[in-house]
Design a protein around this nucleic acid. Structure first.
Lengths: 277, 277
DNA sequence: TCCATTCTGTGAACAGTGTTCTCTGTTGCG
DNA sequence: CGCAACAGAGAACACTGTTCACAGAATGGA
């Protein structure tokens, strides 16, 4: 019960591929919404996969992940329940696809909102990331719950989820790094001394390496605690949104947008962003 | 889709009481683990309710809320599946009981840990609340997920959940108020200016009234932003724990205890607790 | 003590679920 | 054209939560 909490089901292979039992497990052309295949069959297959996901996402928005029924999806699509198993190995694989899509949609909403601002207005950008994240969550509560609520996927989150899942925090890091590069940062309120322990500094370094791998330009003279500050802002943001959506603010906070504003301002100050820009 | 998100099912009456169809809906003596009734029947009924909850909680710890099956519970108890409906109107009512019990158990773990410390060691107490909360969550991940993950209960959280659910944040407030009363607070790092908006100040006042109703002694000269600071610490704490348990720290934080320590220290500084005590 | 009332538990049944398997066409490629 | 790969249908299995009619037991008042 230590590492793999929430492992309800064992992992499975992804695609059924009935009459192609073993073969080289190479590139499975069945799943994913990747480059639409050229042959008519591959195009039809891709279209079917898209249809399933589209309908499933609509129903997810209405009944939530727990209430999502593959039979209901197939009814709406006018196909038999078993047909969907040509495209998804299980209900969990459909949910996984929705998970990946959800992370992408949230990430797109946030980066689009941020991209509409001048890059140097770092504090405004910081606030906009916070608010656009919340706006998306409020507009898509069930989808948000799928991403940041109780994990419902048995097997460990598949690799294709990790990149989309990091988009919001990476954008926060980008804003901070951009501000550092432009010399816009003020003195940080030193909430984080005593300095991070050796272990945490190691975490921060590994995190920086990951961020670099994602193609983000990292300043050389970065405060080693800055990645941790970004991560803390990130979890603070999602902690507040989850509390709002999951009902834990019921007897306390009612002005959620204003409240998030003060949180964003405080975290901006903690990472050293200027008051105004 | 605005107020009652996640309302999957309609609300229902709580107790079945088959042959007592209407009658005065007065005090329903069936549910709850309240004062064990004196008559043999009431005692047997209470024991049965306790047995169901005990077994359900054990299975919850193994398979999680989504995997909890009333048939499986009845199998383990050696009764027929329909028998449990004499005691709980639905599966959701069992989960509600587990919810209330979970809040109580978490609250007890935290307050017990805090009570073992001298009251004036406010900073140490603050840290202990943070860590004992996390310790309980790590030890009871599925139960934690039931409390703070995606809501699974259809109807709005019943009234009996709100008091137990507030115990951790109320304890945080008590520590801060105690420190204020003893003159132990330092200058706050003023992260929260500009001062809270009128709306948020109204939220803070209502929150104070609620806290007073719970019997907590509130100093008269309290900084009006202090309740908001406590709430922010609260959501920061649970945001970090949820991120850890739900797997969002996978590629960043690995030293979770150390990380929570820095978060607790920073939040202690934000609310004005002394460095050492 | 007897009896009607109330409660408790059972077993069958219903509607629904995810998933598998067998079978029948259809499609595409060599 | 013919054969292999695929796509879909439909029945079936093993579950699930819940309801209902029924039988037995405890209870409390006459």
């Amino acid at each position: 019960m230590s590492r793999t909490l929430f492992t309800l089901f064992d992992r499975k292979q992804l695609a059924p591929m009935q009459h192609a039992p073993s073969g080289p497990p190479g590139p499975t052309p069945s799943a994913g919404t990747g480059p639409r295949g050229t042959t008519p069959r591959e195009r039809a297959r891709g279209a079917m996969i898209d249809d399933v996901i589209t309908v499933a996402r609509r129903q997810l928005g209405e009944v939530g992940a727990a209430g999502l029924s593959v039979r209901s999806v197939t009814r709406e699509l006018g196909i038999s329940p078993s047909a969907v198993y040509r495209y998804f190995a299980s209900r969990d694989h459909i949910l996984t696809a929705l998970l990946v899509e959800g992370y992408s949609r949230l990430g797109a909403a946030v980066t689009d909102a941020d991209d509409a601002l001048p890059p140097d207005r770092v504090t405004t950008r910081w606030h906009r990331v916070w608010h656009s994240t919340r706006d998306w969550a409020v507009a898509n509560p069930h989808e948000y719950a799928l991403l940041y609520g109780t994990p419902v996927i048995g097997y460990a989150a598949p690799p294709e989820t990790v990149e989309p899942a990091t988009r919001v925090v990476v954008r926060l890091a980008e804003i901070l790094f951009h501000a550092a590069r432009r010399g816009l940062l003020t003195e940080r309120l030193d909430l984080s001394d005593p300095a991070p322990t050796a272990g945490l500094r190691a975490d921060a370094e590994a995190l920086m390496a990951t961020i670099r791998e994602l193609g983000v330009a990292v300043p050389d003279d970065l405060d080693p605690a800055d990645p941790l500050r970004v991560v803390n802002a990130w979890s603070e943001l999602f902690g507040a949104i989850s509390f709002e959506l999951f009902g834990h603010y019921v007897r306390s906070i009612t002005r959620h947008a204003e409240h998030l504003d003060t949180l964003a301002a405080a975290s901006a100050r903690q990472v050293g962003l200027p008051e105004q820009d």
